[in-house]
Design a protein around this nucleic acid. Structure first.
Lengths: 139, 139
DNA sequence: ACTTCAAATGCAAATCATTTGCATTTAAAA
DNA sequence: TTTTAAATGCAAATGATTTGCATTTGAAGT
């Protein structure tokens, strides 16, 4: 079977290595942003071995190619997610740090106007909504 | 003359010290988010002396009291700004890192609906719009 | 004003996510 | 296969932020 990971690596025009495939496959398998270490650990759980540096290098590479978005969260760690299926925003629990993707973007229509008004060439945006998730509410 | 810094410190109920006043005054004097080091350097320029640790401690303190908002930017450094006059979003130049405050918030009305839909207690959000500023566009 | 003491500061050392240098390995072009 | 630039692993470096601790200081009570 053909894997998305292979397509992505082919598109970037870089070597199709096992560590890179592993990183992409982990990112594919979730809809929450993951930290480099999350990804590292999940790869290990799958029985493979990668170096954390390589995870970082792969993520950086993909970010430069706009295939991954990087967001530094308030805990000081960055979270990464595939942008292959369009950008996405999240509800983030301020207690347990879990996040839930939301399916719309209030910026899409506004960006152009804002850009014109301020003479900026808008290239993107980042939005996160914070709160307490159902579980943490109860505690 | 009465200073905002004094009011703020009184409100938090903590000691009114020179370093803390200096941090708040620097934050008051700008409408861009500043890094801890930015603040540290500006205080020095004003002829005063503070320790960088103290700047961090003051910012942390104020963040816990919701008087300052902290945003970790993609360069890995956090930027801080007063929230005294309500929260605010910014246009951030991806080239020179300058930022311009924008005066509206597309989330205000939507937050409640999103919260209900996902069973979250929403406490806030963070939004940044990226692009090239007028200067950097030309280069 | 003076005393007292918890709170705040300064300094240096520690932390921790991320980055980097370099020797070794590997994908893929010839 | 052979070749070679690109990628990896490992350990050490980096850099923003945090922390431990001895010293200083604001402000509450006298």
């Amino acid at each position: 079977m053909k894997k998305l990971a292979d397509d992505i690596l082919a598109k970037i025009g870089c070597k199709n290595t096992k560590p890179r495939k592993a990183v992409i496959e982990v990112l594919e398998s979730t809809d929450n942003p993951l930290s480099a270490e999350d990804i590292f650990l999940r790869i290990k759980q799958l029985g493979e071995s990668v170096n954390l540096s390589t995870v970082y290098r792969t993520l950086d590479l993909m970010e430069t190619k706009s295939l991954v978005s990087k967001t530094v969260m308030s805990d000081g760690k960055a979270r990464y997610e595939l942008t292959v299926d369009g950008h996405r925003h999240h509800l983030v629990c301020t207690n347990c740090h879990k996040s839930v993707p939301i399916d719309f973007c209030p910026l899409e229509k506004l960006e152009k106007d804002i850009g014109k008004k301020n003479d900026f060439d808008i290239t993107g945006h980042k939005l996160e909504i914070y709160g307490l998730c159902p579980k943490c509410k109860k505690e």
